[in-house]
Every structure is written in structure tokens, then in C-alpha cells.
Design a binder for these strands. Structure first.
Lengths: 148, 148
DNA sequence: GCATATTGCGTGCGTCGCGCACGCTAGTGT
DNA sequence: ACACTAGCGTGCGCGACGCACGCAATATGC
């Protein structure tokens, strides 16, 4: 059965995906950050946190969305004070989307919560295995089936 | 920095989730299976494949959806011949959702495609590491942060 | 044994997010 | 100077969703 490993990983990924798209997860991670931060607007925040201030078009391309969607989500976040539109000094028709201090704080909070949650649930693993798993997972993500 | 591993895994999972929800992935996996199989109806098919014939309510609960959504998706799949509604012999008000032979074949095709795709992209890994990664991933999914 | 509550399903309705297409403004090229 | 392109935001129609309702079948109370 040459495809054993593939099926094993595929099944595990399947349940992982299913579970992680549950709304509850987002709720717990974004609790208390204001109702503007939800599973819809989150990718905009986290995208900006990853790449820094950026045009709507570039961000749309990265998070796999239409430009109009980014515009609308950005507007919501802007009204909530988590995001700021600033004119691109190099191109006056462009507007850069940038996180405000509150936006960065919100992202950092969720990041910290998630990391802590993961660490807690891995506390019972044999020492060292969590590290090797993290390394392999990173490699799997970077050079694996979903690289493109 | 005690949260290093947590952050490492969290970031990897983040990009993994982002990439795997890209529409292209579904397109490639479900290519040629008819337009009734898409990222909307897929969870219904795969849920039934996992658990066998089942009530709409139970399935809705598992895939994290309202009953009405399952009803509508099931109707689409039923019209495409991938799913069958059969009366529950034990409870005459209930209707069980069950895969037809075509439905099972469709799921099996995507499963096989995904497994092959994963195997291919892991071909360059050192021998044995794919196996250990698969085992650890399974454990991560079963006893990890998203178990509940 | 019959009335009532409960369970299970499907459907109408309002809402929301999406992609598409258009208009407007600002650069770019000849 | 003038067409042409690039970048944004908005109106529009579409599709999926959750909620609430109605109907049928079953469980429950007396």
C-alpha cells in the first residue's frame, strides 16, 4: 500500500481543517477585542501584521480575495480603529492599509493566546517531540503539498 | 522565551490554513466530478463517508452548520445523484442521508488524489521522516489544541 | 387512550459577504 | 496634449447562511 502515509496525513489534515474552522476557535482567540475582529476581518489584520503596510490590491492577492472585499473589510476595521488608511507617498492614487497600535495589539493578543493554547495542549508530549514536530510541520508547510 | 514552540506551530498552522482554503485546491481535487461537488457540498460528502448514513441533524452538528444548510446541500447532491435520502427504519419521521455509489466514488477519488499529491511532495524527505511526521500529526490532531 | 409536548425535517425570509463591472482619480507613454 | 493604464471605492446581483415557522411523526403526561 504505497499511499499509506499520504492517506494518513490527508485524513489528519482533514479533521484538523474541519476543527480549526469552527467558529468557537475564533471566538475564544478574539474574545474581548471588539466585534470588528471576527473570522472575516481577521485575515486582513494578520496579513498586514505579516507584511507591514500594504496596498489593498496586494493584500487581496495574498489572502485570496477580491479587491472589493478587502476594501470593505478594511473599512470596518478602520471604523473600529484597528486599521488606518494612509496615502502612499510614492503613488498618490494608492492608499496603504496599515495597522494602528490597537490593531497590532489585537493581533499580538490572538497570537499569544493561540501559542499558549498550543503549548498547553502539548505539555504532555515527551520532551523534545514538540520541537521536532514544529520543525517538521514548518517544513511540511514550506515545501509540502500546499506550497504553491 | 517559553512560547517559542507554540508560536512556531501557530504560524505554520496559520499559513497552512490560509493556503489550504484557497479555491484552487478544491478545484484540482474535485476536477471532473461534476459541478455539484464543490467546497460547499464537499463537507457533506466527506462527513457521510466518515460516519455512514446519518440524519441531517447529526451531520449538521458535526460539520458545524445549521440543519437548513445541510438540507439544502443534501438536496443539491441528491439531484446530482451523489446522495440518497432514505427513510430511517427506526423512526419514520427521520430521513437518513446516505451516499450513493457515485458519491462514494467521488469521495474516494478526491481522497486518492490528495494522498498522491501529498506523497509526491514528500518524496524528497529523508526516508522515514514522513512516517514519523504523519504519526505526530495524527497525535497532534487527536490530542492537540483542537481536540474539542 | 387521548391531548400535549417534543423531535426531525424542509422552506420562506432577511442578512451578509462575495465577485463583477463601473466610475473616478492619478500616474504613464508617445 | 491626449490616450491609456493602474489603483480604489461603490452599486448590483448572487449565493450561502441562520432563524423561525409549519408539518409530520413520536414520546410523554394524566
Amino acid at each position: 500500500m504505497p499511499n499509506d502515509v499520504g492517506h494518513e496525513i490527508a485524513d489528519a489534515l482533514g479533521t484538523l481543517l474541519r476543527r480549526s474552522t469552527r467558529e468557537r476557535i475564533y471566538r475564544r482567540l478574539t474574545e474581548g477585542l471588539g466585534e470588528a475582529v471576527d473570522e472575516v476581518t481577521y485575515p486582513v489584520l494578520s496579513g498586514l501584521a505579516r507584511t507591514g503596510p500594504r496596498s489593498a490590491a496586494g493584500l487581496a492577492d495574498e489572502i485570496g480575495l477580491d479587491r472589493s472585499g478587502v476594501t470593505r473589510r478594511a473599512t470596518r476595521l478602520e471604523q473600529a480603529g484597528l486599521l488606518r488608511r494612509e496615502p502612499d507617498p510614492a503613488d498618490r492614487r494608492a492608499t496603504l492599509l496599515a495597522l494602528t497600535e490597537a490593531g497590532r495589539a489585537a493581533i499580538e493578543t490572538t497570537r499569544q493566546r493561540l501559542a499558549t493554547h498550543i503549548e498547553d495542549s502539548l505539555a504532555s508530549w515527551p520532551p523534545g517531540e514538540a520541537q521536532t514536530f514544529a520543525r517538521q510541520l514548518r517544513r511540511f508547510v514550506d515545501h509540502g503539498p500546499f506550497t504553491a
